[in-house]
């Protein structure tokens, strides 16, 4: 974290639930959601190969630091805001659409300790 920019902590807002997770610098979206205690249904290989983890990026930008095959995420998909969450690293704050039934709601039990950095819609 020698560069000031790299220490920026991007947030991921989940629509429509309104929950927010704070990622670590350089952390891929899916890994960050898990670390914050959210369970997302669309999880496959976690290594950019299967395309199962694609979600709709509603706002913000992501970058891909590792190679992603064009057959897994096409350039059209990139352009139209599809995000390969296991490989995508937010370039700043982002908003993702995840259907309510495809993501756990507020982390409960022990999971809430994972999520100390996240805020619920009622805490905004």
């Amino acid at each position: 974290m020698s560069r000031g920019e790299a220490s920026v902590v991007p947030t991921v807002r989940i629509e429509p639930s309104g929950f927010v997770a704070r990622l670590q610098p350089g952390e891929p979206v899916l890994a960050g959601l898990h670390r914050c205690g959210f369970t997302v249904r669309q999880v496959g290989c976690r290594r950019g190969g299967c395309g199962i983890c694609k979600l709709e990026l509603v706002q913000g930008e992501v970058t891909y630091e590792k190679a992603v095959a064009g057959t897994v995420l096409t350039s059209d998909e990139r352009a139209s805001g599809t995000c390969l969450t296991c490989r995508a690293v937010p370039a700043g704050d982002i908003t993702l659409h995840i259907d309510i039934e495809d993501v756990s709601a507020a982390p409960t039990g022990l999971l809430k300790y994972l999520n100390i950095a996240a805020t619920g819609p009622d805490k905004e």
Binding site: G44, C45, R46, R47, G48, G49, C50, A69, V72
Partner: peptide, 8 residues
Amino acid sequence: FFDPSGSR
């Protein structure tokens, strides 16, 4: 398990 390219 998955290799680094996502192949099982």
